[in-house]
Simulated assay, not measured.
Amino acid sequence: MSDNTFTRAELFELLSASYSPQQIIAGLEQLAASDPTVDPNAEEFPVEISDRLERLFNLAQATLDKSKLLGGSGNLANIQTGAMDMATEQLQLVGVSRETFKAFLDIVAGKTVAQALAVHEFEQELFDEITSELDARSLQRRTEQGFDEIAFIYQLAKNPEIRQQITQEYGLKT
């Protein structure tokens, strides 16, 4: 990195702790849509572009988090509207339009949705695994009880006194 630029790799490294390469590319494309000086396919980016991209991602994440804390439940459109209202002043400082910021909210919200989906899938797999294990234990317990009952019946049947008593009580002939 020179004093005034980030290489593409450095930019991705800088943002990769919080965002996927696809999100970073989508962010660059959104900046390019509103600023013709931004080339999303460039190999070097001015520090100002890198800073702007990072600030937009952070602002989008912070406003989404804040809107959720303030009870912004429901669909993404309601959360976005609330987040946009909260971020209007900061958007002017960053110098981006509401449409560009809405796109960043979509990008960041996509990360949140993906994380929620991953957590849900993990919970489902864990639940399935536990259920399967409990089913296996239950089946094993029932099988052991069945063997115990069969062994008990066999012992009774081998005992001549009990066999005699059963045949007399039930009128069975030997």
Rank of each mutant, 00 (worst) to 15 (best):
M1P: 07
R8S: 04
A9Y: 12
E13Y: 14
L14Y: 14
A17R: 11
S18K: 03
S18G: 14
Y19S: 00
S20T: 13
Q22P: 00
I25S: 01
I25A: 05
L28V: 01
Q30W: 08
S34E: 14
D35S: 06
N41I: 08
F45R: 00
V47G: 00
V47F: 03
E48F: 12
S50Q: 02
F57E: 01
N58L: 08
A60C: 06
Q61T: 08
A62D: 13
D65L: 10
K66R: 12
L70R: 13
G71F: 13
G71N: 03
G72K: 02
S73G: 08
G74K: 01
L76W: 02
N78I: 07
I79R: 02
Q80K: 08
T81K: 05
T81A: 06
M84R: 05
E89P: 07
E89M: 11
L93V: 10
L93R: 07
V94T: 03
V94C: 04
G95V: 04
S97M: 05
S97N: 02
S97Y: 12
T100F: 11
T100A: 05
K102P: 04
A103Q: 03
F104D: 00
L105S: 01
V108F: 03
A109P: 00
T112V: 09
V113Y: 07
V113D: 06
A114T: 04
L117Y: 12
V119W: 10
V119E: 15
E123R: 07
E123Q: 11
Q124R: 07
E129T: 15
E129G: 11
I130Q: 15
E133M: 09
L134N: 06
L134C: 08
A136I: 07
A136F: 13
A136E: 11
R137L: 11
S138V: 08
L139K: 10
Q140S: 13
Q140K: 12
R142S: 12
E144P: 02
E144A: 10
G146D: 12
A157P: 01
I162Y: 13
I162D: 05
R163C: 13
Q164R: 15
